[in-house]
């Protein structure tokens, strides 16, 4: 029930019983009073939607418009309509495919370990613990650290000559690695930053979901002779599936937009993502197109392509969720 009245259309359409037809005037008056009350809903959402229209909806649509034009940052009014030219150009552009590949590999390298470790951590945190709050807060510290700060510190840690990681590698007998210049090494390093920042956060999300699992299930599993590990596999993980799906979606959306880490990892603020673009992501490419090469139409097309990728990911997740829901019914 709501404090506002119900939809006036439906109520008005409902046939009054023949014994007591309301006078038409009464009905009209009533309808008006309902509308007045309903309008409060719009008043409450208005501040949000005014801002939303100005700073979200309008830009989204305008980006779509720009993506169909050749626009230079220096001459915004001189837009030339090129249809899907920016998109076809993008699909033939090796930089785009390189960035898409990098985004995918970094996305996998960061999301998979991040969520797997988070799940394990959540399981550990779910035991009775001394210093529970300490562990939770400590694990969330990276989340509170900004991308810029985290990347700068990790760039130091991964540094070739003075980085702590190479120092340690050397101490145990390995060669120093030039993390930044290699394709895999740089992508691993960037994935480490992302994983470091987000693992604790996801662990807390999983922990919350785990605590929502009724204990009866564990008791029943114990009576059925399931070991702790079996309980984790057969009780915890299935119950967590919707949460896991959700975190995968959220992490993927984040991964598609990855920008700050590759931008700052090079240490010189270059938008190229390394000398041979070895860690240029789509987010970085888009920035490169718009703010280094001043080609806004291209950048807008890249942005919309990123959005379409996200839509596909969310769509797949939605299908999986719906199939699961149907299977459970």
């Amino acid at each position: 029930m709501t404090i506002a009245s119900d939809d006036p259309r439906v109520a008005a359409a409902a046939a009054p019983p023949p014994s007591a037809p309301p006078a038409p005037a009464t009905a009209a008056r009533r309808r008006r009073s309902r509308l007045t009350r309903n309008r409060w809903g719009y008043a409450y959402v208005a501040p949000f939607f005014v801002l939303f229209a100005a700073f979200s909806l309008y830009p989204f649509l305008y980006t779509a418009y720009i993506s169909l034009h050749e626009v230079r940052l220096s001459d915004i009014d001189g837009a030339v309509f090129v249809g899907f030219g920016n998109y076809t150009e993008l699909l033939q552009n090796e930089f785009f495919w390189n960035a898409a590949r990098n985004t995918l590999t970094i996305g996998i390298l960061s999301t998979v370990p991040q969520l797997a470790i988070a799940l394990g951590l959540a399981h550990l945190l779910n035991y009775r613990l001394r210093g529970r709050t300490f562990f939770r807060v400590a694990m969330l510290m990276p989340y509170a650290t900004s991308i810029a700060a985290a990347t700068l510190v990790f760039a130091q840690l991964f540094g070739h000559d003075y980085g702590l990681i190479n120092t340690l590698l050397e101490a145990v007998g390995f060669d120093r690695i030039d993390w930044e210049s290699g394709t895999w090494t740089s992508q691993i390093a960037i994935s480490v930053i992302v994983t470091w920042r987000w693992t604790g956060y996801n662990a807390l999300i999983y922990l919350a979901a785990m605590q929502a699992i009724p204990n009866d299930l564990y008791e029943a599993a114990t009576l059925d002779g399931a070991s702790r590990w079996q309980q984790f596999l057969h009780v915890t993980v299935p119950a967590l599936k919707p949460t896991i799906l959700f975190t995968i979606v959220v992490s993927t959306i984040g991964a598609v937009q990855l920008f700050g880490e590759p931008l700052l990892f090079s240490g010189n603020g270059m938008t190229s993502g390394g000398v041979s673009n070895q860690y240029q992501t789509l987010g970085l490419l888009m920035y490169d197109q718009g703010w280094t090469n001043f080609r806004l139409g291209q950048a807008a097309a890249t942005a919309w392509t990123m959005f379409l990728i996200i839509l596909v990911v969310v769509g797949i997740a939605g299908l999986i969720a719906r199939r699961r829901a149907r299977a459970e019914r």
Partner: peptide, 26 residues
């Protein structure tokens, strides 16, 4: 509160969460 179109508007809000930052900045 129940008002006309509330579900559609809420759907819009939720949908916004998927939109990448990049889409708005230009």
């Amino acid at each position: 509160l129940r008002f006309r179109g509330n579900k559609a508007l809420l759907g819009l809000v939720v949908g916004t969460m998927m939109v990448p930052t990049q889409l708005a900045i230009i």
